[in-house]
Design a protein around this nucleic acid. Sequence first.
RNA 1: GGCGCUAUCGUCUAGGGGACUAGGACGGGGCCCUCUCAAGGCCCAAACACGGGUUCGAAUCCCGUUAGCGCUACCA
Length: 473
Amino acid sequence: MTAPRVRFAPSPTGYLHVGGARTALFNWLLARKTGGTFILRIEDTDRERSTEAHTQVILDGLRWLGITWDEGPLFQGAFGDRHRADAERLVLERTGYRCFCTREELDAQRAVAERGGGRFRYNGRCRALTPDDIRSRLDAGQPFTIRVRMPDGEIAWDDAVHGRISFQGHDLDDFVVLRSDGTAIYNLAVVSDDIEMRITHVIRGDDHVSNTPKQIVLYRALGHEPPIFAHVPMILGADGKKLSKRHGATAVGDYQNLGIFPAAMRNFLALLGWSPGGDREIMPEAELIALFSLDGIQSKPAVFDTVKLEWMNGQYLSATPAEELLPAVETQLGVLGVSAAGRSLLPVIDAVKARSRTIVQLAEQVAVRVHGPRGTPDDKGAALMRKMGPAFQANLQLAANELAAMPPAEWTPDRLLERLKAVADGHGLKLGDALQPIRVALTGSTVSEPVNELLAIVGPIASVDRMRAAAVA
RNA sequence: GGCGCUAUCGUCUAGGGGACUAGGACGGGGCCCUCUCAAGGCCCAAACACGGGUUCGAAUCCCGUUAGCGCUACCA
């Protein structure tokens, strides 16, 4: 068997949707696994809605995910001549015919059919036009579309994910393949291009299964065997409906902005509707490629669970050394409008890594440690202050005075803990009552790394300053 | 309405006639650790949609019901 040739063929009418990204990923995985070729084709035949900006966003999203293409991007709009020639060939070979029905006539028929509760079907009026009819209409300059003559009988294929899927030709219309302006309709453009590009496996969303019988008819009419089809299930929102904007973040770029790692996104997307079997969850790229197979693809739709995505991102985050995190953290600090204040961020990153699931969360915590909490304590911090009342300030003042007396050279986690324990003991305080106010003063939150480590990260001068400021506030 | 697809814990899934007391992961609950929260470790609750077949035996195969989703354009 020759190496597979697969393609991802988005239309640039919107952002790169996570469903599209997953389709691209499956295609890419198959190509990389088999030594095949992954082709990127931009389906820009809808002139109204396609934009250059959307194309750029899709390319960027793919690159961000590490999905690299071997050929393309090819623009479908450039192949209009071939599409038209294919349509004309259908007419010549009588597998297609010219239809002179006007849009108005068709719309009227459709309106009637829908009022009756049924579905509109083309009545086949132009199927049997005589050559004379056709010539006179042509001479009169009547516009026409080209339709395909839908054969009777079964049209079926062995889908790589669903198994055998079968349609009856008589349930399908004689569909239009060429508009009256001479441009191709989707189904023709796809088949014409897939033939030209020698595509062997068409991996796409389930929403295309009802296009497949039409495309199979076109393959045969154009004298080619259909490729292998693999229809991957839809991605749903938490409410079980097809994932869309109202579910929140659906564009790949949204997740990039949220601080998700490409590797985590790729891993998560791969597992949405595909499983290598067994218990594998966290898989690096090489393993994903090695294990990928079309038979592992689920046939039912999957709900997109952002909580699990974040968990997975946290796994990648904690496995990534601070040095590798640094550039992304610096970028994110820039977004927050905050500087590194001339200090090394590496120890700070290490201190807060375990408590972050995304780069955004990580950078926020770094910013707090470098610059102090912005604004008032969060809800829990404020609640703690209320609960402790005057003791909060008193304990904080006490600790500040003790720590201020420590020589900077002794300002290490171990010595700090020793000192703090001694202070608490000496004043009959529970360790927590001595430490929590410090945590709140330094971070504005009741959550952080151990207080002694926090103090070491923030440093002697800033720590004492912030504690004293909070003690009088 | 028609056509098509699908149905295992709340979610992602393993399983593909006996290995099932249905496994793992997220999320939830509990315990350990502990100055807090995470992380980590241990434990718990939680599912084969329903009804018929086939079979010695069905989560697994077949049929039906129900439900969900998709498509139903001179959009892609």
